[in-house]
């Protein structure tokens, strides 16, 4: 390991940091899920039944 860089071994994550990271991960997950859901329903709204009217 080059000096000045870090590895997992010399990084200590506190309980508070772990909790915050978990909360941020959950928030990002929820936002992404909401974005996917919105785009799904928007596609239905804009295209309607024409979604099925395409060449396969």
């Amino acid at each position: 390991m080059a000096e000045g860089k870090y590895t997992r071994e010399n990084v200590e994550i506190t309980e508070e940091q772990l909790k915050a990271r978990r909360a941020r991960n959950v928030a990002i997950g929820l936002v992404l899920a909401a974005f996917v859901a919105i785009m799904y329903f928007v596609t239905w709204t804009k295209l309607g039944i024409n979604i099925f009217n395409r060449e396969l």
């Binding site: 000045g4 870090y6 994550i13 506190t14 940091q17 915050a20 909360a23 941020r24």
Partner: peptide, 19 residues
């Protein structure tokens, strides 16, 4: 001494409400 001088990355403790 080298260990104590190593600059560790700041590990964020920001919560979603901070963002």
């Amino acid at each position: 001494s080298a260990k104590s001088e190593t600059v560790f990355p700041v590990i964020s403790s920001a919560m979603p409400h901070d963002y």
